[in-house]
Design a protein around this nucleic acid. Structure first.
Length: 733
DNA sequence: AACGAGAGACAA
DNA sequence: TGTCTCTCGTTC
């Protein structure tokens, strides 16, 4: 009974079918399998094994062999990949590559043996490729693959007699006889001799570098942080959302749940959106419970070590970024999502998954309890319908400065006064900007045009430090033109949206002797002095939230609140409220002053922030947000997807977009379900013209149906789909 | 993603 | 006519 199997490769292709060799045993579904692919070999994931059809044995190529005898990804993980492929309408291999960052590029041994008596297994590396291919086609060989044993190069003694050497060399040899050592320098240091003495030992043939089998390596854990103080809090046993407090308050509140899972012999999983927050959480958790951690920064060997340790199943808290989601936990406990509303969860490329949604889907498959935690409740949490647990609010002294009719720019009088206080008291402060560089653009005062990138429909960003203009999308650079390229007048000036560079300069002018540091996408000053407690002001973008809190920050200032809420995204207001609530996390000071400069002091985000009863203010804010989203047909009350079309010239992309929209309408897409096509907000990027088409459906099934009608390409245009896009501008009415 | 086949663009 | 670049389709 010949068997076939479906194999998923981490490439933008659907699963492919291979034949299991007639005398070979198939490995498990969810195991890694080596298969021939375009003249070479690749590791894929076996997602199904079934009886081959009659003609399969003629048409299909054969698997080389499985690398695993136990599933590398459990059945639930394989099913999750299948569902996400359906939901995203991305090729299955892209979904695999987006979620499984471990084991598919492993080193393995590939051996062949000629059929018949007396032949040994031989490594393919030593054989002629063409001859091998011919023999394979004739079915004259058997093949197998297995994971390569990891080795390390170590220095070992080749003589066991210390008397073989004399003097200092003897000391080194004695040291080496205690066991293999990684390097000559290490032996030299341990024996108290020079490196050349050890080298002489090697020349004499008394010591040599050898490959020795490497033990399992696990990703290193961050240095231990402070212990968590668990609040006496009654938590539900089932699903719930935890909001309020500071990050470590929420983590502390969840610790008893982790301990309960461990006591029951289960391994709870804790996922975080970014490495910084993951490490911060682990540095505290590891004081209390056994922890395994996997982040994108782990090396291949460490990832595989983590995977093996997880599979062995001794109870531990399994922590990680998205890369840990498919780890084969045999006895899982709860699934906990930290910073559940962070925009970083949305993958920018590949299948563009929103990882919490994938995680919740996996939890449903494995029947796990899901707990999410964040500073502020979100409409998505409320739609989930789980219980809401609110921690006491962080202490925040808040001050809002109305910039209407103000005298200073970009630093108004209130901010100037507080900055001076910070300097005279030799304390620290953080000033948040929404953009890096000097200003948003170079604008002509005569014709109000901006200097644009030649490849993108975006203004070039002005970087004052080197007097250059830069495109933050494609990296194009040029010098500042002396005259406006449009009207040739001599009136180019930086636009008013102040970037970190402009703010830093303004503060430095105000406080000439006070240290002013900068932290953003392209300037990463050494913050060592601040972490040692020395005075200084940090001008930063939101990149600062990925750093540990400053020990003596008294002031947390937002340079222009309006720049955050006016982002072209219907979630901008909630994101801003969350940002403002997270500000105290930037400082170890228990009651820092939060100062916000704005032209809209009555903005509903500020009303919610300043409400006398904080819990009530936020609850009303979320209720109002939910009502708006429902009224205007936004998620979580609908499902959205953005169809992104691009082409080298404007006409063909416009034509392709209207063609796709037309055929969708013909196939029954309602007016409510199809918005556009419109040129993308940035209508040209890296020399390609972009059009967007927004799909909106009442439920996931209908969205899938609509996406099923979107072609892969049309009229020479490339088409990409982003399900649940994160930067959709506000569509009123 | 990576490769090869076929279609135009350009120089000789 | 050759060669180079670009697009398009295939990969099991």
């Amino acid at each position: 009974m010949p068997l076939a199997c479906d194999v998923l490769l981490p490439l933008p292709v659907p699963p492919f079918r291979y034949l299991v060799p007639f005398d070979g045993e198939p490995g498990p579904v969810g195991g890694r399998v080596v298969v021939p692919w375009q003249g070479t070999y690749r590791i894929g994931l076996c997602v199904a094994v079934y009886r081959a059809r009659a003609d399969d044995s003629l048409n299909l190529r054969e698997t080389v062999g499985w690398l695993d005898s136990e599933p590398f990804v459990l059945d639930s993980g394989v099913e999750l990949l299948r569902r996400l492929t359906e939901a995203t309408s991305a090729p299955a291999g892209v979904v695999l590559a987006s979620l499984l960052a471990t084991g598919l590029r492993a080193r393995y041994r590939h051996e062949v043996r000629r059929m018949g008596e007396g032949h040994d297994w031989e490594d393919v590396a030593s054989l002629d490729e063409h001859e091998l291919e011919a023999q394979r086609a004739q079915g004259m060989i058997r093949e197998r693959a297995f994971p390569a044993q990891r080795t390390l190069t170590h220095l070992v003694a080749t003589s066991d007699d210390p008397a073989a050497a004399s003097g200092k060399q003897r000391l080194a040899l004695e040291e080496l006889l205690k066991g293999p050592v990684e390097s000559a320098a290490q032996v030299a240091a341990a024996a108290g001799v020079s490196a050349s003495t050890v080298r002489a030992l090697i020349t004499k043939g008394l010591a040599a570098y050898r490959e020795v089998p490497a033990g399992r390596v696990l990703p290193g854990l961050p240095a231990a942080g402070e212990r968590l103080e668990v609040p006496g809090l009654q938590l539900p046993d089932g699903d719930f959302d935890l909001v309020g407090g500071l990050r470590f308050h929420r983590l502390a509140a969840l610790l008893p749940l982790l301990e309960a899972d461990l006591a029951a012999g289960r391994s709870p999983m804790v996922l975080a959106p970014e490495v910084g927050w993951l490490e911060e959480a682990v540095s505290r958790l590891a004081n209390h419970v056994p922890v395994l951690m996997l982040s994108g920064e782990a090396k291949d060997a460490e990832r595989e070590g983590f995977w093996q340790a997880v599979a062995e199943g001794s109870p531990a808290v399994i922590t990680g970024t998205y890369a840990a989601l498919l780890a084969p936990v045999p006895r899982p406990g709860r699934l906990i999502l930290l910073e559940a509303c962070s925009p970083s969860w949305k993958q920018p490329a590949g299948a563009r998954l929103h990882v919490p949604d994938a995680a919740i889907e996996l939890a449903r498959l494995r029947e796990l309890t899901v707990v999410t935690a964040d500073a502020v409740e979100s409409p998505e949490m409320r739609a989930r319908g789980a219980e809401l647990i609110r921690l006491p609010a962080p202490a925040q002294r808040l001050h809002v400065t109305d910039l209407n009719g103000a005298r200073g720019w970009p630093l108004d009088t209130d901010l100037v006064r507080v900055l001076k206080q910070v300097a005279t008291r030799e304390r620290q402060g953080v000033l948040l900007s929404s953009r890096r560089g000097f200003s948003g653009a170079l604008t002509c005062k005569e014709c109000s045009s901006q200097v644009e990138c030649p490849h993108c429909d975006l203004p070039l960003r002005y970087h004052q430090a080197d007097g250059r203009l830069r495109c933050h999308q494609c990296g194009f650079e040029r010098t500042v033109p002396p005259n406006c390229p449009v009207c040739t007048s001599n009136s180019l000036a930086p636009a008013r949206a102040a970037g970190t560079q402009w703010l830093a300069q303004a503060v430095q002018r105000l406080l000439p002797d006070f240290p002013v540091l900068r932290l953003d996408g392209d300037t990463k000053d050494d913050l060592g002095s601040l972490y040692r407690g020395e005075p200084g002001l940090l001008v930063a973008t939101t990149a600062v939230f990925r750093r540990p809190p400053l020990p003596r920050a008294d002031l947390l200032a937002v340079a222009l609140f309006d720049a955050h809420t006016s982002m072209s995204d219907f979630r901008a207001s909630e994101t801003t409220l969350r940002l403002l609530r997270q500000l105290p996390e930037l400082s170890l000071n228990p009651r820092p002053l939060t100062l916000i400069q704005t032209f809209q002091p009555q903005h509903r985000v500020l009303r919610a922030l300043l409400a006398d009863d904080q819990a009530l203010g936020e609850t009303e804010f979320v209720t109002e947000t939910c009502e708006r989203r429902e009224a205007f047909g936004y998620p979580p009350y609908t499902r959205m997807a953005r169809v992104e079309l691009s082409a080298r010239d404007r006409a063909s992309v416009a034509q392709a977009a209207s063609h796709v929209a037309g055929s969708l309408r013909e196939l029954g897409a309602q007016e409510f379900e199809l918005i556009g096509p419109t040129p993308a907000p940035v209508a040209r990027l890296k020399g390609r013209f972009l059009y967007h088409l927004l799909l909106r459906a009442a439920d996931p099934a209908r969205l899938r149906e609509l996406l099923g009608h979107v072609p892969r390409g049309s009229h020479g245009a490339r088409i990409l789909v982003d399900v649940d896009p994160r930067d959709v501008s506000v569509l009123e009415g």
